[in-house]
Amino acid sequence: MRVKVRPLNCTGCALCELACGFHWDEAFSLISSSVLLYRAEEKKDYMGVIIKTEEDLFLGRPEGTAEMKLGEIQKQGAGGGASAKPILIRQTCDLCKSAGVEPQCVEICPHDALYLE
């Protein structure tokens, strides 16, 4: 069971990041969530969602989804490799089990862009 993304449902509201950040920090911020909204290419409206787990990244890119094992893309590009240290600044997704609740990002998303499978 993991959190997956329907990328084209996403409208980029960042509620998932806020809810996840709250789960970890009991405060509101966009810096510590396990779910990451990618919105760095604003002029192109290229936007996606990344879920960080212990073993991989679930990438909800507009052109499709992928599960990328950490370390796998290290072989690609310029020194490339997915960020891997499991518990650093950003916790990996624990499906909110440590709080004993349903995954908050899934619950809070207004457009069903996130789901459990």
């Binding site: 084209l8 409208t11 980029g12 509201c13 960042a14 509620l15 806020l18 409206d45 936007m47 507009p62 207004p110 457009h111």
Partner: peptide, 19 residues
């Protein structure tokens, strides 16, 4: 229409990206 975009924390995605 390419996609609809929300403002921060808004359930409504009024903003409309057109290409």
């Amino acid at each position: 229409v390419h996609r609809y975009r929300s403002c921060f924390a808004c359930p409504a995605a009024c903003n409309t990206f057109v290409k």
